[in-house]
Design a binder for these strands. Structure first.
Lengths: 143, 143
DNA sequence: GCAGAGGCTTACGTTAACGTAAACGTAAAG
DNA sequence: CTTTACGTTTACGTTAACGTAAGCCTCTGC
């Protein structure tokens, strides 16, 4: 089912940004399965609109999906990704919750800094590994 | 069982680097369970020496364990970590294997660069989230 | 009017990475 | 000599994150 795009405000939006997506649109764009997308919804990470039974994804839904996938690339669980995404919307009423959110942000920041260090060292080691490999390759070739 | 440290070359090594560790030594140091360490061995990531049945870990084994845990922090699977660790020792004989190793290194590098970008953007967003939270907190307090 | 091309729900299967527990061996300490 | 601490193997259990059907609905093109 191709989600129809009647170009709502005619000739005004220049960039090609659709205002809704089908589930397979998103699956194709991000190289995942529709099953995965529905799974994320099951886990409370997405809640697209419905036309009848059919899911209709807004650009905001698409952004959330991108955030989920970025979280995966960083090794976050879906629960962690949801927590991070939930930091965006300001529905946090009382002071305690805001304090805990700040702590949470600090924790994430610390984790990201650790990841940064890890990446730096691994990058350096990859450089060395590449050098050794090229050396080994050169030696193999000159014989 | 405390692995005995008879200080083999007497009064020569100044730094406190033990030359062997028990499984619970390592478990304690890295905040994991002995079960996990044995699991890594099952998966071929470690192969410590044995005194009878008991596992004896060398400093090199300890380093491998550190690399495994760094891999985990970066969201790598144990298989991926093993592949990366295997890049270190030069047992790669023929040219094809070396070529594939180089490709492999390039892939990892690309992945790490993606992670770097991901971390940068997430860091920025954490800054914004913190700012919003502090603003929200200030507003709550001034009423 | 019917064959595809999507989409939906429900449900069982699968893999990775351990957790948990049982049942046993051994060495030092009281 | 028995408790305590640590170690071992074996094996079943668990959670996350989907994969893989099966069975059914609905619109579109021919």
């Amino acid at each position: 089912m191709k989600t129809e795009q009647p170009q709502p405000q005619p000739g005004h939006e220049s960039g090609p940004e659709p205002d809704s997506y089908s589930i397979s649109d998103l699956a194709r764009e991000f190289g995942i399965t529709t099953r995965a997308i529905r799974f994320y919804e099951d886990k409370g990470l997405l809640s697209p609109a419905r036309r009848g039974q059919t899911r209709i994804y807004s650009p905001e839904d698409r952004v959330r999906l991108m955030l989920i996938l970025r979280g995966k690339r960083l090794g976050f669980s879906l629960d962690e990704s949801r927590e991070i995404i939930d930091m965006y919307d300001p529905e946090h009423g009382n002071v305690e919750q805001l304090q805990r959110l700040l702590q949470h942000i600090e924790q994430k920041r610390a984790q990201l800094q650790q990841q940064l260090r890890d990446i730096q060292s691994l990058m350096g080691e990859l450089d060395e590994a590449e050098a050794r490999t090229r050396a080994s390759l050169a030696q193999t070739q000159e014989q």
